[in-house]
Write a protein that binds this DNA or RNA. Structure first.
Lengths: 201, 201
DNA sequence: CTAGTTTGCCTAAAATCTTTAGGCAAATAC
DNA sequence: GTATTTGCCTAAAGATTTTAGGCAAACTAG
């Protein structure tokens, strides 16, 4: 009987494709075995368990998304970079909803620390460099951007904005514009102190 | 043999409690049956299937969260209202992570339309009234707020901000402040037009 | 208070998924 | 060409979901 040529990598990629087709939740070891036309138990030579499959898909998606965002941001700064980054994010989620969902899987701290997740926050920080925020604020901004991008995209994917005007892309543009303005404001508090007016100089 | 007194309502509440204890993903009909010390099949007299259980928990959580947000916002306006709303959201997610996760379950359109989800967007719109945004912008803002709140809270719950300064609550305050400023800017473009300087009057 | 009806939880069983153990044959290595 | 390793297999057990049918407890009459 000819061998199927299974490897962890091929299984991961096929799992990612399956996720895009049927949803990340529906990715099971059984479904993957059917896709390769082998018996389920065979996959356990290549994967420790079902959790490892999901984790591998998540890591793969994080990497792919980071590559894409990295390409998008290359050579840009300020609002241009922000918009490109945001667009890479949204585009990936729309093209690969299953992989995007996978990228949101909760990883245990060590795995996360060794994953492309760190590239994501590094990129966010790089973009913020163009806005010249003082340090506690920069971290707040990293978290806010992570939150908005993830949150908005996830609401859009859930179909929350279907069947209602204006369409999701217009809102996305408006939000990116607004965030840019917000960050510029935070950077240069020349005449509108929005926090405690203490320690001004 | 004494009866357990199962009802859809009691099952839903117990399911919500279970979700907070072990995570919404881990809420199964079997686990719930064990909790009531009855056989699994017994639950199927009260629930159509596993999906219905999850949907009921989701609807319950949406309602509970809407009540809480509604109380928090009552009698407030402008930034006060925004901050109270945000705090209600974040507090609920922290106290009831399982229920919060349930509230994020994707509902089919009809179910969603008949759920407390509509109260959520109504409240958001009510808060935005204090900022006096023109119409396409108001919808964009509703979506942005939904996105930020959901996204940030979900990152915080995932533990993304653990073990790093500043703590999550500081960032939350900063974000709410920033959003308030952003919305005020969008409302009154008196001398800083951040969009196309066309159709100014 | 007893007879009839409804209701609630039960046993039984099938389908699917996860996971482990052990076997045989194909690929690889002298 | 034999020996070893590797890859996919069969078999089997445990868990979850869901359906079908049964028996007894709880209402509803007279």
């Amino acid at each position: 009987m000819a061998r199927a040529g299974l490897t962890p990598e091929r299984l991961t990629l096929a799992g990612a494709e399956l996720a895009d087709e049927v949803g990340f939740e529906q990715v099971t070891v059984s479904a993957l075995a059917r896709r390769f036309d082998v018996k389920v138990a065979s996959l356990y030579s290549h994967l420790k368990n079902s959790q490892e499959l999901k984790t591998r898909i998540a890591l793969f998606a994080l990497e792919e998304l980071a590559d894409r965002a990295s390409d998008a941001v290359a050579g840009r700064a300020g609002k241009d970079a922000l918009a490109a980054f945001a667009e890479a994010y949204r585009g990936y989620a729309r093209e690969h909803p299953g992989r995007y969902a996978a990228a949101r899987l909760r990883l245990d701290p060590e795995t996360a620390a060794a994953s492309a997740a760190v590239r994501h926050s590094q990129m966010t920080r790089a973009i913020l460099r163009g806005y010249d925020l003082p340090e506690p604020d920069q971290t707040h901004a990293v978290r806010m951007l992570g939150g908005v991008f993830h949150g908005y995209v996830s609401l859009e994917l859930a179909g929350s904005f279907d069947h209602s005007a204006p369409d999701a892309r217009e809102s996305w543009t408006w939000i990116v514009d607004s965030l840019d303005a917000l960050l510029r404001n935070r950077a240069a508090p020349h005449n509108r102190p929005s926090r405690k007016p203490r320690s001004t100089g």
